[in-house]
């Protein structure tokens, strides 16, 4: 029982991170399309933010793994 709840938790964490990283990527592409000369700055900040969002998801997945 604990295992299946943990699996749902992992899925929710993945959904959250997916929405977050998707928004970041989409906005970054929009920004690059608008200002191609700022590609370097946008890319670095995009990866940094995506990594932070992913971090939250990873912590959730780790905790659900520990609960299972």
């Amino acid at each position: 029982m604990g295992g299946s709840i943990a699996a749902i938790g992992m899925g929710l964490a993945a959904i959250g991170a997916g929405i977050g990283v998707g928004t970041i990527g989409g906005k970054a592409l929009e920004a690059i399309a608008r200002q191609p000369e700022a590609l370097g700055d946008i890319r670095a900040n995009m990866i940094l933010t995506a990594a932070l969002v992913e971090g939250a998801a990873l912590i959730a997945i780790l905790f659900s793994y520990l609960v299972a």
Binding site: A51, L52, E54, G55, L58, I59, I61, L62
Partner: peptide, 12 residues
């Protein structure tokens, strides 16, 4: 938490 996420991100 910073080193923890660094650890987990690469590992995962």
């Amino acid at each position: 938490i910073k080193p923890v996420t660094l650890t987990l991100r690469l590992f995962a």
